[in-house]
Design a protein around this nucleic acid. Structure first.
Lengths: 223, 223
DNA sequence: TTTTTTAAGGTATAATTAAGGTTAAATAAT
DNA sequence: ATTATTTAACCTTAATTATACCTTAAAAAA
Protein backbone atom coordinates (compact mmCIF):
# COMPACT_ATOMS: atom_id res chain seq x y z
CA UNK A 1 0.00 0.00 0.00
CA UNK A 2 1.45 3.32 -1.08
CA UNK A 3 0.53 6.47 0.81
CA UNK A 4 1.12 10.16 0.32
CA UNK A 5 1.60 12.13 3.51
CA UNK A 6 1.19 15.90 3.29
CA UNK A 7 2.14 17.46 6.60
CA UNK A 8 4.23 20.59 7.04
CA UNK A 9 5.46 20.08 10.60
CA UNK A 10 8.67 18.16 10.08
CA UNK A 11 8.74 16.40 13.45
CA UNK A 12 5.20 15.21 13.07
CA UNK A 13 5.78 14.12 9.51
CA UNK A 14 8.86 12.12 10.37
CA UNK A 15 7.14 10.38 13.25
CA UNK A 16 4.24 9.43 11.01
CA UNK A 17 6.53 8.15 8.29
CA UNK A 18 8.33 5.96 10.82
CA UNK A 19 5.18 4.42 12.17
CA UNK A 20 3.48 3.96 8.83
CA UNK A 21 6.62 2.40 7.41
CA UNK A 22 6.76 0.06 10.38
CA UNK A 23 3.24 -1.01 9.51
CA UNK A 24 4.31 -1.95 5.99
CA UNK A 25 3.02 1.07 4.16
CA UNK A 26 5.19 2.76 1.57
CA UNK A 27 5.11 6.49 2.29
CA UNK A 28 6.03 9.58 0.31
CA UNK A 29 6.19 12.71 2.45
CA UNK A 30 5.59 16.22 1.14
CA UNK A 31 5.59 19.47 3.09
CA UNK A 32 3.26 21.92 1.40
CA UNK A 33 0.01 22.04 -0.49
CA UNK A 34 1.46 22.54 -3.94
CA UNK A 35 3.69 19.52 -3.63
CA UNK A 36 0.77 17.57 -2.23
CA UNK A 37 -1.31 18.42 -5.26
CA UNK A 38 1.45 17.63 -7.73
CA UNK A 39 2.27 14.26 -6.24
CA UNK A 40 -1.33 13.26 -5.60
CA UNK A 41 -2.42 14.03 -9.14
CA UNK A 42 0.05 11.46 -10.42
CA UNK A 43 -2.63 9.06 -9.27
CA UNK A 44 -0.44 6.24 -8.05
CA UNK A 45 -1.26 6.30 -4.36
CA UNK A 46 -3.63 3.99 -2.51
CA UNK A 47 -4.42 6.68 0.05
CA UNK A 48 -3.58 10.26 1.00
CA UNK A 49 -3.20 11.82 4.43
CA UNK A 50 -3.71 15.53 4.06
CA UNK A 51 -3.15 18.19 6.69
CA UNK A 52 -5.44 21.18 6.33
CA UNK A 53 -3.05 23.87 7.54
CA UNK A 54 -0.20 23.96 5.05
CA UNK A 55 1.99 26.54 3.32
CA UNK A 56 1.33 27.64 -0.27
CA UNK A 57 -2.00 25.86 -0.63
CA UNK A 58 -4.26 24.63 2.16
CA UNK A 59 -5.54 21.07 2.37
CA UNK A 60 -9.13 21.88 1.58
CA UNK A 61 -8.10 23.56 -1.67
CA UNK A 62 -5.93 20.60 -2.59
CA UNK A 63 -8.83 18.27 -1.83
CA UNK A 64 -11.23 20.31 -3.93
CA UNK A 65 -8.87 20.49 -6.89
CA UNK A 66 -8.08 16.80 -6.81
CA UNK A 67 -11.72 15.77 -6.70
CA UNK A 68 -12.53 18.25 -9.45
CA UNK A 69 -10.05 16.61 -11.80
CA UNK A 70 -11.50 13.20 -11.08
CA UNK A 71 -9.02 11.89 -8.55
CA UNK A 72 -10.72 9.14 -6.55
CA UNK A 73 -7.94 8.25 -4.16
CA UNK A 74 -9.27 8.01 -0.60
CA UNK A 75 -8.23 11.00 1.46
CA UNK A 76 -7.95 11.33 5.22
CA UNK A 77 -7.89 14.92 6.46
CA UNK A 78 -5.92 16.06 9.49
CA UNK A 79 -6.47 19.27 11.39
CA UNK A 80 -6.20 21.06 14.69
CA UNK A 81 -9.02 20.19 17.04
CA UNK A 82 -10.93 23.42 16.96
CA UNK A 83 -11.49 23.93 13.26
CA UNK A 84 -14.91 22.38 13.16
CA UNK A 85 -16.09 24.20 10.06
CA UNK A 86 -13.17 22.64 8.21
CA UNK A 87 -14.42 19.19 9.09
CA UNK A 88 -17.82 19.96 7.68
CA UNK A 89 -16.39 21.51 4.55
CA UNK A 90 -13.92 18.65 4.09
CA UNK A 91 -16.46 15.89 4.35
CA UNK A 92 -18.76 17.65 1.94
CA UNK A 93 -15.90 18.26 -0.48
CA UNK A 94 -15.35 14.52 -0.72
CA UNK A 95 -12.86 13.66 1.98
CA UNK A 96 -13.23 10.07 3.10
CA UNK A 97 -12.43 10.62 6.72
CA UNK A 98 -11.26 13.15 9.17
CA UNK A 99 -8.97 13.11 12.19
CA UNK A 100 -8.43 15.87 14.74
CA UNK A 101 -5.00 16.57 16.21
CA UNK A 102 -3.79 15.40 18.57
CA UNK A 103 -4.70 11.83 17.77
CA UNK A 104 -3.37 8.46 18.81
CA UNK A 105 -1.38 6.41 16.30
CA UNK A 106 -3.72 3.51 16.91
CA UNK A 107 -6.65 5.57 15.86
CA UNK A 108 -4.89 6.82 12.76
CA UNK A 109 -4.01 3.27 11.78
CA UNK A 110 -7.54 2.04 12.43
CA UNK A 111 -9.04 4.83 10.35
CA UNK A 112 -6.54 4.21 7.57
CA UNK A 113 -7.39 0.51 7.51
CA UNK A 114 -11.10 1.27 7.41
CA UNK A 115 -10.70 3.87 4.70
CA UNK A 116 -8.48 1.77 2.44
CA UNK A 117 -10.71 -1.26 2.91
CA UNK A 118 -13.78 0.71 1.86
CA UNK A 119 -12.23 1.65 -1.45
CA UNK A 120 -10.54 -1.65 -2.06
CA UNK A 121 -13.38 -3.33 -3.85
CA UNK A 122 -14.27 -0.42 -6.07
CA UNK A 123 -11.03 -0.35 -8.06
CA UNK A 124 -11.02 -2.66 -11.05
CA UNK A 125 -7.88 -1.90 -12.97
CA UNK A 126 -7.06 -3.53 -16.21
CA UNK A 127 -3.93 -3.02 -18.24
CA UNK A 128 -4.00 -3.44 -22.00
CA UNK A 129 -1.54 -3.74 -24.85
CA UNK A 130 -2.59 -4.64 -28.37
CA UNK A 131 -5.38 -7.17 -28.12
CA UNK A 132 -4.10 -8.36 -24.73
CA UNK A 133 -5.47 -7.32 -21.36
CA UNK A 134 -4.26 -8.10 -17.87
CA UNK A 135 -6.65 -7.79 -14.95
CA UNK A 136 -4.82 -6.75 -11.82
CA UNK A 137 -7.61 -8.03 -9.59
CA UNK A 138 -8.06 -11.47 -11.00
CA UNK A 139 -4.62 -11.95 -12.58
CA UNK A 140 -6.43 -12.87 -15.78
CA UNK A 141 -4.52 -12.58 -19.04
CA UNK A 142 -7.07 -12.20 -21.79
CA UNK A 143 -7.23 -11.96 -25.58
CA UNK A 144 -10.69 -11.29 -26.98
CA UNK A 145 -13.02 -13.54 -25.00
CA UNK A 146 -10.51 -16.20 -24.07
CA UNK A 147 -8.43 -15.85 -20.96
CA UNK A 148 -6.34 -17.70 -18.44
CA UNK A 149 -5.39 -16.89 -14.89
CA UNK A 150 -1.70 -16.41 -14.35
CA UNK A 151 0.26 -17.74 -11.38
CA UNK A 152 1.57 -15.03 -9.10
CA UNK A 153 5.10 -14.67 -10.40
CA UNK A 154 4.06 -14.92 -14.02
CA UNK A 155 1.54 -12.21 -13.31
CA UNK A 156 4.10 -9.93 -11.73
CA UNK A 157 6.48 -10.30 -14.65
CA UNK A 158 3.69 -9.69 -17.13
CA UNK A 159 2.54 -6.70 -15.12
CA UNK A 160 6.00 -5.17 -15.43
CA UNK A 161 5.81 -5.43 -19.20
CA UNK A 162 2.34 -3.94 -19.30
CA UNK A 163 3.32 -1.07 -17.02
CA UNK A 164 6.46 -0.26 -19.00
CA UNK A 165 5.37 -0.49 -22.59
CA UNK A 166 8.00 0.31 -25.22
CA UNK A 167 10.66 0.28 -22.53
CA UNK A 168 13.31 -2.37 -22.42
CA UNK A 169 13.49 -4.11 -19.06
CA UNK A 170 16.58 -6.10 -18.19
CA UNK A 171 16.32 -9.56 -16.72
CA UNK A 172 18.27 -8.32 -13.71
CA UNK A 173 15.72 -5.60 -13.23
CA UNK A 174 12.86 -8.09 -13.37
CA UNK A 175 14.62 -10.35 -10.90
CA UNK A 176 15.07 -7.48 -8.48
CA UNK A 177 11.52 -6.14 -8.77
CA UNK A 178 9.66 -9.43 -8.73
CA UNK A 179 11.85 -11.72 -6.66
CA UNK A 180 13.29 -8.98 -4.44
CA UNK A 181 16.69 -7.37 -4.39
CA UNK A 182 18.03 -9.95 -1.94
CA UNK A 183 16.73 -13.08 -3.62
CA UNK A 184 18.76 -16.22 -4.11
CA UNK A 185 17.05 -17.01 -7.38
CA UNK A 186 19.19 -17.08 -10.50
CA UNK A 187 18.76 -15.02 -13.59
CA UNK A 188 17.77 -18.11 -15.53
CA UNK A 189 14.58 -18.25 -13.51
CA UNK A 190 13.52 -15.07 -15.25
CA UNK A 191 14.19 -16.70 -18.60
CA UNK A 192 11.95 -19.57 -17.64
CA UNK A 193 9.14 -17.20 -16.79
CA UNK A 194 9.58 -15.25 -20.01
CA UNK A 195 9.31 -18.55 -21.79
CA UNK A 196 6.08 -19.44 -19.99
CA UNK A 197 4.57 -16.07 -20.81
CA UNK A 198 5.51 -16.35 -24.46
CA UNK A 199 3.87 -19.72 -24.69
CA UNK A 200 0.68 -18.43 -23.11
CA UNK A 201 0.57 -15.29 -25.25
CA UNK A 202 0.99 -17.38 -28.39
CA UNK A 203 -1.61 -19.89 -27.24
CA UNK A 204 -4.16 -17.10 -26.72
CA UNK A 205 -3.40 -15.59 -30.12
CA UNK A 206 -1.97 -12.33 -28.85
CA UNK A 207 -0.83 -9.77 -31.39
CA UNK A 208 2.08 -8.77 -29.18
CA UNK A 209 5.11 -10.75 -28.13
CA UNK A 210 7.99 -10.45 -25.71
CA UNK A 211 11.04 -9.48 -27.70
CA UNK A 212 14.55 -9.77 -26.34
CA UNK A 213 17.26 -7.29 -27.17
CA UNK A 214 20.51 -8.96 -26.43
CA UNK A 215 22.44 -7.34 -23.57
CA UNK A 216 19.69 -4.79 -23.09
CA UNK A 217 16.47 -6.44 -22.04
CA UNK A 218 12.95 -7.36 -23.04
CA UNK A 219 9.83 -5.51 -24.04
CA UNK A 220 6.37 -6.09 -25.45
CA UNK A 221 6.16 -5.48 -29.18
CA UNK A 222 3.48 -5.63 -31.83
CA UNK A 223 4.02 -8.60 -34.09
CA UNK B 1 -34.46 8.38 5.65
CA UNK B 2 -35.18 6.59 8.89
CA UNK B 3 -32.70 6.84 11.73
CA UNK B 4 -32.34 5.18 15.11
CA UNK B 5 -30.91 7.40 17.82
CA UNK B 6 -29.54 5.67 20.92
CA UNK B 7 -28.57 8.29 23.49
CA UNK B 8 -29.31 8.13 27.20
CA UNK B 9 -29.08 11.82 28.13
CA UNK B 10 -32.63 12.99 27.62
CA UNK B 11 -31.85 16.65 26.92
CA UNK B 12 -29.27 15.75 24.33
CA UNK B 13 -31.51 13.18 22.73
CA UNK B 14 -34.43 15.59 22.42
CA UNK B 15 -32.26 18.27 20.90
CA UNK B 16 -30.93 15.83 18.34
CA UNK B 17 -34.40 14.56 17.49
CA UNK B 18 -35.54 18.13 16.90
CA UNK B 19 -32.71 19.01 14.61
CA UNK B 20 -32.74 15.75 12.68
CA UNK B 21 -36.47 15.98 12.24
CA UNK B 22 -36.06 19.53 10.98
CA UNK B 23 -33.64 18.15 8.39
CA UNK B 24 -36.27 15.70 7.12
CA UNK B 25 -35.05 12.56 8.82
CA UNK B 26 -37.49 10.24 10.58
CA UNK B 27 -36.05 9.46 14.00
CA UNK B 28 -36.73 6.78 16.59
CA UNK B 29 -35.11 7.56 19.94
CA UNK B 30 -34.11 4.90 22.46
CA UNK B 31 -32.39 5.41 25.80
CA UNK B 32 -30.35 2.32 26.61
CA UNK B 33 -28.25 -0.35 24.94
CA UNK B 34 -30.75 -3.15 25.08
CA UNK B 35 -33.44 -1.09 23.42
CA UNK B 36 -30.89 0.04 20.87
CA UNK B 37 -30.01 -3.54 20.03
CA UNK B 38 -33.63 -4.68 19.85
CA UNK B 39 -34.71 -1.86 17.59
CA UNK B 40 -31.60 -1.94 15.42
CA UNK B 41 -31.80 -5.67 14.80
CA UNK B 42 -35.18 -5.17 13.19
CA UNK B 43 -33.05 -4.00 10.33
CA UNK B 44 -35.33 -1.30 9.01
CA UNK B 45 -33.22 1.77 9.62
CA UNK B 46 -31.13 3.61 7.07
CA UNK B 47 -28.64 4.66 9.74
CA UNK B 48 -27.97 4.41 13.46
CA UNK B 49 -26.47 6.96 15.82
CA UNK B 50 -25.10 5.08 18.79
CA UNK B 51 -23.74 6.53 22.01
CA UNK B 52 -21.04 4.41 23.61
CA UNK B 53 -21.83 5.22 27.23
CA UNK B 54 -25.29 3.81 27.84
CA UNK B 55 -27.13 1.94 30.60
CA UNK B 56 -27.68 -1.82 30.43
CA UNK B 57 -25.48 -2.45 27.42
CA UNK B 58 -22.73 -0.20 26.10
CA UNK B 59 -22.58 0.97 22.50
CA UNK B 60 -19.55 -1.09 21.52
CA UNK B 61 -21.28 -4.27 22.61
CA UNK B 62 -24.39 -3.34 20.70
CA UNK B 63 -22.27 -2.61 17.64
CA UNK B 64 -20.41 -5.90 17.91
CA UNK B 65 -23.57 -7.94 18.32
CA UNK B 66 -25.27 -6.24 15.41
CA UNK B 67 -22.37 -6.74 13.05
CA UNK B 68 -21.94 -10.31 14.12
CA UNK B 69 -25.51 -11.00 13.15
CA UNK B 70 -24.96 -9.56 9.74
CA UNK B 71 -26.54 -6.17 10.29
CA UNK B 72 -25.12 -3.84 7.67
CA UNK B 73 -26.86 -0.65 8.64
CA UNK B 74 -24.36 2.23 8.75
CA UNK B 75 -23.56 3.20 12.30
CA UNK B 76 -22.18 6.48 13.65
CA UNK B 77 -20.69 6.20 17.12
CA UNK B 78 -20.81 8.99 19.69
CA UNK B 79 -18.64 9.30 22.76
CA UNK B 80 -16.95 11.60 25.21
CA UNK B 81 -13.83 13.12 23.73
CA UNK B 82 -11.20 11.25 25.74
CA UNK B 83 -12.09 7.64 25.12
CA UNK B 84 -9.68 7.07 22.32
CA UNK B 85 -9.45 3.31 22.68
CA UNK B 86 -13.18 3.20 22.12
CA UNK B 87 -12.76 4.90 18.79
CA UNK B 88 -10.23 2.36 17.66
CA UNK B 89 -12.32 -0.55 18.86
CA UNK B 90 -15.44 0.91 17.31
CA UNK B 91 -13.95 1.43 13.89
CA UNK B 92 -12.52 -2.05 13.84
CA UNK B 93 -15.79 -3.56 15.01
CA UNK B 94 -17.44 -2.16 11.93
CA UNK B 95 -18.62 1.30 12.87
CA UNK B 96 -18.85 3.55 9.83
CA UNK B 97 -17.92 6.73 11.55
CA UNK B 98 -17.17 8.28 14.84
CA UNK B 99 -17.93 11.59 16.51
CA UNK B 100 -16.54 12.95 19.76
CA UNK B 101 -18.69 14.98 22.14
CA UNK B 102 -19.14 17.84 22.21
CA UNK B 103 -19.72 18.26 18.51
CA UNK B 104 -21.43 20.81 16.36
CA UNK B 105 -24.75 20.00 14.76
CA UNK B 106 -23.30 20.94 11.42
CA UNK B 107 -20.61 18.34 11.80
CA UNK B 108 -23.07 15.68 12.81
CA UNK B 109 -25.22 16.43 9.81
CA UNK B 110 -22.24 16.41 7.45
CA UNK B 111 -21.04 13.08 8.78
CA UNK B 112 -24.51 11.62 8.55
CA UNK B 113 -24.84 12.75 4.95
CA UNK B 114 -21.45 11.26 4.06
CA UNK B 115 -22.18 8.00 5.82
CA UNK B 116 -25.63 7.49 4.34
CA UNK B 117 -24.35 8.39 0.90
CA UNK B 118 -21.66 5.73 1.13
CA UNK B 119 -24.11 2.97 1.93
CA UNK B 120 -26.93 4.19 -0.26
CA UNK B 121 -26.51 1.71 -3.03
CA UNK B 122 -25.96 -1.40 -0.98
CA UNK B 123 -29.37 -2.25 0.41
CA UNK B 124 -30.57 -5.67 -0.61
CA UNK B 125 -31.85 -8.50 1.52
CA UNK B 126 -31.28 -11.43 -0.80
CA UNK B 127 -28.15 -12.05 -2.78
CA UNK B 128 -28.10 -14.31 -5.82
CA UNK B 129 -25.53 -15.96 -8.03
CA UNK B 130 -26.42 -18.53 -10.64
CA UNK B 131 -29.22 -20.66 -9.26
CA UNK B 132 -28.11 -19.96 -5.70
CA UNK B 133 -29.62 -17.39 -3.37
CA UNK B 134 -28.58 -16.28 0.09
CA UNK B 135 -31.07 -14.54 2.34
CA UNK B 136 -29.33 -12.02 4.57
CA UNK B 137 -32.20 -11.99 7.04
CA UNK B 138 -32.72 -15.71 7.53
CA UNK B 139 -29.22 -16.96 6.58
CA UNK B 140 -30.90 -19.38 4.20
CA UNK B 141 -28.83 -20.75 1.33
CA UNK B 142 -31.23 -21.86 -1.35
CA UNK B 143 -31.18 -23.57 -4.75
CA UNK B 144 -34.57 -23.76 -6.48
CA UNK B 145 -37.01 -24.76 -3.74
CA UNK B 146 -34.57 -26.53 -1.49
CA UNK B 147 -32.66 -24.60 1.14
CA UNK B 148 -30.69 -24.90 4.36
CA UNK B 149 -29.94 -22.39 7.09
CA UNK B 150 -26.26 -21.63 7.39
CA UNK B 151 -24.44 -21.25 10.70
CA UNK B 152 -23.28 -17.71 11.37
CA UNK B 153 -19.68 -17.98 10.22
CA UNK B 154 -20.50 -20.05 7.18
CA UNK B 155 -23.06 -17.41 6.30
CA UNK B 156 -20.59 -14.58 6.66
CA UNK B 157 -18.07 -16.31 4.45
CA UNK B 158 -20.72 -17.11 1.87
CA UNK B 159 -21.95 -13.54 2.04
CA UNK B 160 -18.49 -12.26 1.18
CA UNK B 161 -18.48 -14.37 -1.94
CA UNK B 162 -21.94 -13.22 -2.93
CA UNK B 163 -21.07 -9.57 -2.34
CA UNK B 164 -17.85 -9.76 -4.32
CA UNK B 165 -18.76 -11.77 -7.37
CA UNK B 166 -16.03 -12.31 -9.95
CA UNK B 167 -13.52 -10.91 -7.49
CA UNK B 168 -10.91 -13.09 -5.90
CA UNK B 169 -10.92 -12.88 -2.13
CA UNK B 170 -7.86 -14.07 -0.25
CA UNK B 171 -8.17 -16.35 2.75
CA UNK B 172 -6.41 -13.67 4.79
CA UNK B 173 -9.00 -11.17 3.73
CA UNK B 174 -11.82 -13.50 4.73
CA UNK B 175 -10.18 -14.15 8.06
CA UNK B 176 -9.86 -10.43 8.72
CA UNK B 177 -13.39 -9.55 7.65
CA UNK B 178 -15.24 -12.43 9.26
CA UNK B 179 -13.12 -13.29 12.29
CA UNK B 180 -11.74 -9.76 12.85
CA UNK B 181 -8.32 -8.33 12.13
CA UNK B 182 -7.02 -9.21 15.58
CA UNK B 183 -8.34 -12.75 15.76
CA UNK B 184 -6.29 -15.69 17.00
CA UNK B 185 -7.91 -18.06 14.52
CA UNK B 186 -5.62 -19.64 11.96
CA UNK B 187 -5.88 -19.43 8.23
CA UNK B 188 -6.74 -23.11 8.05
CA UNK B 189 -10.03 -22.34 9.73
CA UNK B 190 -11.03 -20.49 6.61
CA UNK B 191 -10.13 -23.53 4.53
CA UNK B 192 -12.39 -25.65 6.65
CA UNK B 193 -15.29 -23.27 6.13
CA UNK B 194 -14.68 -23.15 2.40
CA UNK B 195 -14.80 -26.91 2.46
CA UNK B 196 -18.13 -26.91 4.33
CA UNK B 197 -19.64 -24.43 1.92
CA UNK B 198 -18.51 -26.44 -1.07
CA UNK B 199 -20.11 -29.54 0.33
CA UNK B 200 -23.38 -27.72 0.93
CA UNK B 201 -23.39 -26.08 -2.49
CA UNK B 202 -22.82 -29.44 -4.15
CA UNK B 203 -25.46 -31.11 -2.00
CA UNK B 204 -28.03 -28.52 -3.04
CA UNK B 205 -27.12 -28.89 -6.68
CA UNK B 206 -25.77 -25.40 -7.15
CA UNK B 207 -24.49 -24.42 -10.59
CA UNK B 208 -21.73 -22.35 -9.04
CA UNK B 209 -18.74 -23.45 -7.03
CA UNK B 210 -16.00 -21.89 -4.96
CA UNK B 211 -12.85 -21.94 -7.01
CA UNK B 212 -9.44 -21.43 -5.46
CA UNK B 213 -6.56 -19.76 -7.26
CA UNK B 214 -3.30 -20.49 -5.57
CA UNK B 215 -1.69 -17.39 -4.06
CA UNK B 216 -4.62 -15.25 -5.12
CA UNK B 217 -7.79 -16.30 -3.40
CA UNK B 218 -11.23 -17.70 -3.94
CA UNK B 219 -14.29 -16.72 -5.89
CA UNK B 220 -17.65 -18.05 -6.98
CA UNK B 221 -17.65 -19.38 -10.51
CA UNK B 222 -20.20 -20.91 -12.82
CA UNK B 223 -19.52 -24.60 -13.28
C1' DT C 1 -27.20 -30.82 20.48
C1' DT C 2 -25.07 -27.69 16.94
C1' DT C 3 -21.38 -24.88 15.79
C1' DT C 4 -16.53 -23.77 15.82
C1' DT C 5 -11.69 -24.88 16.08
C1' DT C 6 -7.63 -27.82 15.89
C1' DA C 7 -4.83 -31.39 13.98
C1' DA C 8 -2.98 -34.11 10.60
C1' DG C 9 -2.15 -36.27 6.37
C1' DG C 10 -2.87 -35.90 1.48
C1' DT C 11 -3.03 -33.62 -3.15
C1' DA C 12 -2.31 -30.48 -6.67
C1' DT C 13 -0.03 -26.62 -8.37
C1' DA C 14 3.53 -23.31 -8.40
C1' DA C 15 8.45 -22.34 -8.13
C1' DT C 16 13.03 -23.70 -8.99
C1' DT C 17 16.84 -26.31 -10.81
C1' DA C 18 19.27 -28.61 -14.26
C1' DA C 19 20.64 -29.53 -18.65
C1' DG C 20 21.02 -29.22 -23.40
C1' DG C 21 19.96 -26.37 -27.41
C1' DT C 22 19.86 -21.99 -30.10
C1' DT C 23 21.16 -17.54 -31.69
C1' DA C 24 23.17 -12.91 -31.83
C1' DA C 25 27.24 -10.40 -31.62
C1' DA C 26 32.09 -9.88 -31.49
C1' DT C 27 36.34 -11.13 -33.28
C1' DA C 28 39.48 -13.40 -36.21
C1' DA C 29 40.63 -15.19 -40.59
C1' DT C 30 40.28 -14.93 -45.42
C1' DA D 1 34.60 -6.64 -47.23
C1' DT D 2 33.18 -11.05 -46.42
C1' DT D 3 33.10 -15.28 -44.11
C1' DA D 4 34.12 -18.35 -40.34
C1' DT D 5 34.74 -19.08 -35.50
C1' DT D 6 33.82 -18.43 -30.95
C1' DT D 7 31.47 -16.99 -26.98
C1' DA D 8 28.12 -15.94 -23.97
C1' DA D 9 23.52 -14.53 -23.69
C1' DC D 10 19.25 -16.40 -24.21
C1' DC D 11 15.62 -20.25 -24.67
C1' DT D 12 13.02 -24.30 -23.62
C1' DT D 13 11.75 -28.60 -21.60
C1' DA D 14 11.47 -31.73 -18.10
C1' DA D 15 12.31 -33.20 -13.51
C1' DT D 16 12.45 -31.93 -8.75
C1' DT D 17 11.19 -29.48 -4.70
C1' DA D 18 8.30 -26.57 -1.98
C1' DT D 19 4.06 -25.11 -0.28
C1' DA D 20 -0.70 -23.55 -0.62
C1' DC D 21 -4.78 -25.60 -0.32
C1' DC D 22 -8.25 -29.65 0.93
C1' DT D 23 -10.60 -32.73 3.52
C1' DT D 24 -11.78 -35.51 7.28
C1' DA D 25 -12.22 -36.47 11.84
C1' DA D 26 -12.06 -35.48 16.41
C1' DA D 27 -12.01 -32.19 20.19
C1' DA D 28 -13.77 -28.09 22.26
C1' DA D 29 -17.08 -24.59 22.96
C1' DA D 30 -21.62 -22.59 22.88
Amino acid sequence: MKLLLAEDEVDMSEALVDILTFHKYTVDAVYDGEEAYDYASLGNYDGIILDIMMPKKDGLTVLKELRKEGCQTPILMLTAKSEIEDKVAGLDLGADDYLAKPFSMDELLARLRAMLRRREKSIATELTCGNVSLNQQTFELKVKDEGIILPKLEFQVMEMFMLNQDMYISADNILEKVWGYDTDAEISTVWVYISYLRKKLAQLGADVEIQAKRNIGYRLEKK
